[in-house]
Amino acid sequence: MTAPSLHVTTFNIHKGFSQFNRRMMVHELRDRLRHLNPDIVFLQEVQGLHLGHAENHHNWPSAPQHEFLADEVWQASAYGRNMIYDHGHHGNAILSRFPILDSHNQDVTHLQFEKRGLLHCRIALPEGPAAHCVCVHLSLFGHSRRRQMHALADYLDSMADPTAPIIIAGDFNDWSNKAGQQLAARLGLIEVFSQRDGRPVRSFPAAMPMFRLDRIYVRGFNIISTEVHHGQPWSAISDHAALSACLGRHGA
Rank of each mutant, 00 (worst) to 15 (best):
H7W: 13
F193P: 15
G128M: 04
E72D: 14
W234A: 03
T226S: 12
P4Y: 01
L247S: 04
M24V: 06
D154V: 01
Y155M: 12
N173C: 05
D161V: 04
Y217N: 04
H27K: 06
A151T: 11
L156N: 13
A206Y: 08
H53C: 12
G180E: 01
H230F: 06
S103C: 06
R97L: 00
D107H: 07
I123G: 06
D239L: 09
D197V: 09
Q19N: 13
P200S: 12
A241Q: 09
T9I: 15
Y79E: 01
S144H: 15
Y217G: 09
K178P: 03
T9W: 09
M210S: 10
P4L: 02
H104T: 15
I168L: 07
S144I: 05
A131V: 07
S96P: 00
Q47L: 13
H110D: 13
L119I: 03
A252H: 13
S96F: 00
R186L: 07
Q232M: 08
T2Y: 13
H14G: 07
G231N: 10
G91P: 02
A245S: 10
L119E: 08
L138D: 06
C246A: 14
D31W: 01
L152H: 00
H90W: 07
A241N: 07
I223L: 11
V218K: 05
L140P: 06
C133I: 00
G128I: 06
F204Q: 01
F68Y: 07
A3I: 10
F193H: 14
L29E: 10
F68A: 08
Y155G: 05
R147I: 11
C246H: 11
F42M: 02
D197S: 09
N177T: 12
R186M: 08
P165E: 05
T2C: 10
L51A: 11
F211M: 02
W234Q: 05
A76G: 13
I216T: 06
L125W: 02
E114Q: 09
S5Q: 15
K15Y: 01
A78I: 00
H14Q: 10
L247G: 05
F172G: 12
I167F: 02
F11Q: 07
G180Q: 06
S238W: 02
V136T: 15
D157Y: 12
A3C: 13
R81T: 07
D31P: 02
I40M: 08
K178S: 09
R186G: 11
V46Y: 05
G248V: 02
S244K: 00
N177K: 05
A93N: 00
A185K: 13
I94C: 05
P200H: 08
T109Q: 02
T2I: 12
G117Y: 00
